[in-house]
Amino acid sequence: MSETNKDRDIHTHALIGERLCLDFANTVSWHDSEDSREWLTSYEQLVGWCLHADILTEQQALSLLQQAEGNPAEATKILEKALEFREAIYRIFSSISNDETPGKTDLSILNGVLVDVYRSIQIIPGEDKFSLQFRKPDDSLAGMLSPIVQSAIDILVSEKDLKRVKKCEGDPCGWLFLDTSRNRSRRWCSMADCGNRAKARRFYQNKK
């Protein structure tokens, strides 16, 4: 049964995924457990996390919260859409971390959100090539989703990054991350968290 983190500060939530979309997917604690804990319990929490993740500036966050206050029904719809999108991302990259093909339904959800934010895409010139990027979040209630979508696409179209997507081995953590270590040896969301628990468990078992 899923629990919430209503009393916990979203601005203290760990950002360990190495990529924005993976950090967004990790806004549920113990994601692989029946005792999972939801962090994004309101539109205000969604905005707060986006501020914490540097998607929004303080001015943009304040503007969105003011809009949400004037249109709470729409803000609730955006939150529901964001959570559906997040869960699709989580399942997609969980499948990839297990060398499995993502489900068609989850890819359809991702593509649906992509269509919604496609109007904000633009061509950016570089030194020797052009790239497609989403403009910075606009002032719409769902504007903060664009950078998260771009982050997911960047991984999915990169053969190098796709092979580095991993899930924490700490059962039942379930958090996702991009293994940027030189020898691709990262196993835990954090050595100070799941890594230490695994060490303590091995020590107890050996002593027993």
Rank of each mutant, 00 (worst) to 15 (best):
189 C>W: 07
2 S>E: 08
23 D>Y: 05
195 G>S: 05
134 F>I: 12
14 A>T: 03
129 K>W: 11
142 A>K: 05
185 S>Y: 02
21 C>R: 05
30 W>L: 14
72 P>I: 03
177 F>V: 11
116 D>T: 15
206 N>F: 12
183 N>M: 05
147 P>K: 06
15 L>K: 15
65 L>K: 10
58 E>M: 02
21 C>E: 03
123 I>Q: 15
57 T>E: 03
100 E>T: 12
123 I>E: 14
201 R>N: 03
142 A>M: 04
130 F>T: 15
6 K>R: 04
139 D>F: 01
130 F>H: 13
202 R>I: 13
52 H>P: 05
103 G>N: 04
128 D>R: 11
128 D>V: 13
124 I>R: 14
193 D>S: 14
173 C>V: 12
137 P>G: 14
78 I>W: 03
55 I>T: 15
107 L>T: 12
27 T>K: 05
28 V>T: 12
108 S>C: 13
114 L>C: 06
194 C>A: 09
191 M>V: 10
63 S>E: 07
128 D>M: 02
175 W>N: 09
153 I>D: 02
140 S>W: 04
4 T>F: 05
112 G>Q: 12
154 D>P: 01
168 C>S: 05
99 D>M: 00
118 Y>K: 04
46 L>P: 12
25 A>W: 01
77 K>A: 00
21 C>P: 02
39 W>E: 05
153 I>T: 03
54 D>L: 07
131 S>Y: 07
165 V>S: 05
157 V>M: 08
96 I>H: 08
90 Y>K: 00
124 I>T: 15
119 R>I: 04
32 D>I: 02
150 Q>D: 02
174 G>I: 06
127 E>H: 10
168 C>H: 03
81 K>E: 14
80 E>A: 12
31 H>G: 11
39 W>F: 07
83 L>D: 13
147 P>G: 04
2 S>W: 04
54 D>V: 09
45 Q>V: 08
100 E>K: 14
102 P>V: 09
95 S>E: 15
68 A>I: 02
8 R>N: 07
110 L>V: 07
202 R>T: 13
126 G>A: 08
174 G>T: 07
88 A>Y: 01
116 D>S: 14
64 L>C: 12
86 R>C: 04
35 D>I: 03
126 G>D: 07
62 L>V: 14
81 K>V: 13
159 E>W: 00
161 D>A: 15
1 M>W: 01
175 W>T: 11
174 G>K: 04
96 I>T: 13
105 T>E: 10
107 L>K: 13
140 S>L: 09
133 Q>Y: 09
33 S>I: 08
170 G>T: 14
207 K>F: 08
175 W>A: 08
41 T>P: 02
192 A>F: 10
97 S>N: 08
22 L>A: 09
64 L>N: 13
183 N>F: 06
17 G>A: 10
131 S>I: 11
55 I>C: 11
191 M>K: 07
40 L>Y: 04
10 I>W: 06
61 A>I: 07
134 F>N: 09
72 P>Q: 00
65 L>R: 10
80 E>M: 08
110 L>I: 07
177 F>Y: 15
192 A>H: 13
6 K>Y: 00
33 S>F: 02
31 H>V: 09
89 I>A: 01
41 T>M: 00
108 S>Y: 11
98 N>L: 12
147 P>Q: 06
132 L>T: 12
122 Q>A: 07
160 K>H: 11
195 G>R: 10
